[in-house]
């Protein structure tokens, strides 16, 4: 079932065209990467999908509803975890619920149920500064997911982490997506990360940014534990890098 569709998105800032007729669709349970170099309009595209910016042309459809330019429908997570230092972890996590008008006690109860699954058990009453980098990222992800309609947008969420933590987060994210039936649009400039996590990779290149190519990764996500070391992986990497270079 198609969950989310950004159709024919076009956007210019001060007469300078940033995105040209970009279409991205997301199936339920799928992870689609938008891979592009810096300045290709990736973040603008995500801002439009999340409703923070209105496109000049095009529509964003979430489960059949037009949500173009309406924030609060699709959750969004940036590279910075943006946990609010003055709130306890649990209050950070349930902030989106509180924003929608749910009572604090009730919101805490709802959020608390997922701490275990996100590897955050026992951190509820701590402050963000007491968490490690990976834990902060997971807490931010839980917050994003709690207010999602099953879809999250991630803007280079793992790029600030060290290599080992990043690899752990990748593995954890794949297993968690399965267990909570999450669909994701991931923005990244990291080719390895895109291949490792995605079902499909959309290459967004050029000025203005357009989707030049879509590459499907056929290896099932369950079998990707040591995927990065296989010839298959290198094959994909070759294709993606070549396509990026052409653009």
């Amino acid at each position: 079932m198609e969950l989310l569709r950004a159709e024919g998105i076009t956007k210019a800032f001060d007469g300078k065209s940033v995105l040209q007729d970009v279409t991205v669709a997301l199936e339920e349970g799928e992870l689609v990467s938008i891979l592009g170099l810096s300045g290709s309009g990736k973040t603008t595209l995500l801002n439009i999908i999340s409703g923070l910016i209105r496109p000049d042309a095009g529509k964003v459809i979430l489960q059949g509803w037009d949500v173009t330019g309406r924030p609060g429908q699709i959750s969004y997570m940036l590279q910075k975890d943006l946990l609010l230092e003055h709130k306890r972890v649990i209050d950070n996590v349930c902030l989106p619920l509180v924003i929608t008008g749910i009572k604090k006690e009730e919101a805490r109860k709802q959020a608390d149920a997922y701490f275990g699954r996100f590897g955050l058990e026992g951190t509820q009453m701590l402050y963000p500064s007491q968490l490690s980098g990976g834990m902060r990222q997971r807490a931010a992800l839980l917050r994003t997911w709690l207010c999602s309609h099953g879809v999250v947008l991630l803007d280079e969420p793992f790029s600030a982490l060290d290599m080992i933590t990043k690899a752990q987060m990748h593995e954890w994210y794949l297993s968690m997506m399965r267990s909570i039936n999450l669909s994701t649009i991931l923005i990244t400039h990291d080719v390895d990360e895109a291949i490792l996590l995605s079902d499909r990779i959309c290459l967004l290149t050029g000025t203005p940014g357009m989707i030049r190519e879509e590459i499907r990764i056929d290896t099932p996500r369950e079998e990707r534990k040591d995927f990065a070391l296989t010839p298959e992986f290198l094959g994909y990497k070759q294709r993606v890098t070549a396509a990026l270079r052409e653009a």
Binding site: L52, P71, G72, S75, L82, L84, K87, L95, P96
Partner: peptide, 26 residues
């Protein structure tokens, strides 16, 4: 106040008063 944090709250659908209470005031 972190402009990204304000954007994040906006993406959650927060109103001006909520952004003030949760981000700007602290």
């Amino acid at each position: 106040a972190d402009a990204d944090a304000v954007a994040l709250l906006r993406s959650m659908g927060a109103k001006r008063g909520q952004i003030f209470r949760h981000v700007k005031f602290p």
